[in-house]
Amino acid sequence: MTPPARSRRPIGRPRGDGRPHLTRHEALLAAARLISAEGYTGASIRMIAQELGVATASLFNLFPSKDALLNELVVYLAQPSLDFYRRLGGFSLAPDVALYKSLYEEAFVVASVDPALPAIFYLPELRKPQFGPAQKARAALVGHYRALIGAGCADGAFVCDLPDLAAEQMLQLTETSVLAALPESPADRAHASARLALRGLLARPERLDAVKAQAQRIKLTIL
């Protein structure tokens, strides 16, 4: 997951130190970093405002509450991936190729961005009822993998005992690309993640290199 392009529309009052107006993009990324470091309970609106160099009122002008901020943050971080999955569906790919491409692109982006961002999707608070929009966005990410796994099982490409569990594991596998401080490039880590996942699902593991080659020919990325 990665944030969409920056908003160009100024929001709120100019900051006293002469920096430009606070944007929604800037506020959400600062919140992601603090919430990742301090936990949802530990990261107050006041702390986020201090990090940004603005008054707390400026943040409340953007988000009516901290719960609203977290809901918007999860949706915001998930949206580029969901847009990518929708566009990928237009290629009418075999499930194994579509899954490899999805895993590779997601892992590549995650391995290339701020390590604070993926942690947001695993906050225990997201289970609470007030975070319905966030839950829906996360479920849509997992749902993409579930649909591909189900299609692959139906056509005999995959063998999977628990497709729902496997779909959750697919999402988690892409997120771990950012956690290990490895010397390999994001592309190398992304291919390793995709190959690991597909090797465990393919009914014919010897097809893995052919699946990778087909996925690499698709000129579509999340960014």
Results as ranks from 00 to 15, higher is better:
Met1His: 13
Arg127Trp: 07
Leu34Pro: 00
Met47Lys: 06
Gln79Asp: 15
Gly18Ile: 04
Ile48Met: 10
Gly39Lys: 05
Ala49Gln: 10
Ser44Met: 01
Thr41Tyr: 06
Pro115Gly: 10
Leu123Phe: 07
Ala27Met: 05
Arg8Pro: 02
Met47Asp: 13
Ala68Ser: 08
Leu82Ser: 02
Gly89Lys: 00
Glu125Met: 10
Ala31Pro: 02
Thr41Glu: 14
Pro3Gln: 01
Gln130Ser: 08
Pro3Ile: 02
Tyr76Leu: 12
Ser65Met: 14
Ala119Val: 15
Leu77Tyr: 07
Arg9Trp: 04
Arg87Asp: 00
Pro20Ser: 01
Pro124Phe: 01
Lys136Gln: 15
Val74Ala: 13
Gln130Trp: 05
Arg8Trp: 01
Glu51Val: 06
Val113Cys: 13
Arg33Trp: 03
Pro14Cys: 04
Pro14Phe: 05
Arg86Gln: 10
Leu29Arg: 01
Ser102Phe: 04
His21Gly: 09
Gly42Thr: 08
Ala27His: 07
Ser36Gln: 05
Tyr122Asp: 14
Pro3Glu: 01
Pro115Ala: 14
Ser7Trp: 02
Glu26Tyr: 00
Lys101Ser: 06
Glu72Met: 12
Ile120Val: 15
Lys101Leu: 15
Asp17Arg: 01
Arg87Val: 03
Thr56Arg: 13
Gln50His: 12
Arg15Thr: 09
Ser92Cys: 01
Gly39Ile: 08
Arg86Ala: 04
His21Ser: 08
Glu38Gly: 05
Ser7Asn: 11
Ile11His: 05
Ala107Asp: 09
Ile35Leu: 09
Leu77Glu: 06
Met47Ser: 11
Tyr100Glu: 14
Lys101Asn: 04
Ala49Glu: 13
Pro3Asn: 01
Ser65Glu: 08
Leu77Phe: 12
Gly90His: 07
Ser36Trp: 05
Ala107Met: 06
Arg127Val: 03
His21Val: 11
Arg15Cys: 00
Ile120Ala: 14
Ala31His: 03
Gly89Phe: 00
Phe60Thr: 15
Pro80Lys: 07
Ser58Lys: 02
Thr41Val: 12
Arg33Met: 13
His25Gly: 12
Thr23Ala: 04
Asp114Asn: 09
Ile45Lys: 00
Leu73Gly: 10
Asp67Ala: 08
Ser58Thr: 11
Leu93Arg: 04
Ala32Cys: 11
Arg13Asn: 07
Arg46Met: 13
Gln135Glu: 12
Arg9Ile: 15
Phe63Glu: 10
Phe60Glu: 11
Pro95Gly: 07
